[in-house]
């Protein structure tokens, strides 16, 4: 009997401005774990996330809410929160050449009767030092989602893997 994390799909890219993992959600799982790592070329930038709908199109409607605790090793922590945004923000904060890693737990993305909730935690490094982020977010649409898109900076390299949680 299969248990624990079940690999579904991974995607990777070099010198890309976004990375989509398509058709990774299905009726087989209710909860997913996404792990990612990479680097980008921008100075001190955030990574954003959008869901992909059942047809594979980006969900860009202003239906995202999120809240972040940004934890810096060199400064006071900061809170940020937004309602009705068109994306989830602050998946990672990092800097050219400083790398990053993140994990995201996603709940009910394929359930057409539920909102898609998620929580994530990440480590990146700005030009000044470590930046850790702990966050919650939701897409307030009762619709089936099929995947995710990670974007905003230009990624030197990025690898994202999606697992179903059994």
């Amino acid at each position: 009997m299969a248990t624990n994390l079940e690999f579904i799909k991974s995607a990777s890219g070099t010198s890309v401005s976004s990375l989509s993992v398509t058709d990774c959600f299905s009726a087989k799982y209710d909860v997913y774990t996404v792990v990612g790592r990479g680097d980008f070329t921008n100075s001190n930038a955030f990574i954003y996330l959008r869901f992909l709908d059942s047809g594979g199109s980006e969900v860009s409607a202003s239906n995202y809410d999120y809240a972040n605790l940004v934890m810096e090793s060199y400064a006071s922590f900061g809170e940020s929160r937004t309602t009705n945004a068109d994306h989830l923000e602050r998946i990672v904060y990092s800097h050219n050449g400083n790398d990053f890693g993140f994990e995201i737990n996603i709940y009910n993305p394929y359930d057409s009767s539920s909102y898609s909730f998620c929580q994530w935690q990440s480590g990146g490094r700005s030009s000044l030092g470590l930046v850790g982020i702990k966050s919650i977010g939701v897409l307030k649409q009762t619709a089936t989602m099929s995947g995710i898109k990670i974007y905003n900076p230009t990624f030197t390299d990025i690898n994202v893997s999606v697992y179903g949680v059994k």
Binding site: M71, N98, D99, G101, G123, R125, L130, V131, G132, I133
Partner: peptide, 26 residues
């Protein structure tokens, strides 16, 4: 690449404590 970690924990005694954070060896 730098080695990163993120973490979370809970401890119990007379009070409940929790922590979460991130770290890196750059």
């Amino acid at each position: 690449k730098y080695s990163f970690a993120s973490y979370q924990s809970e401890a119990t005694s007379n009070t409940t404590q929790y922590s979460f954070g991130s770290g890196v060896l750059p």
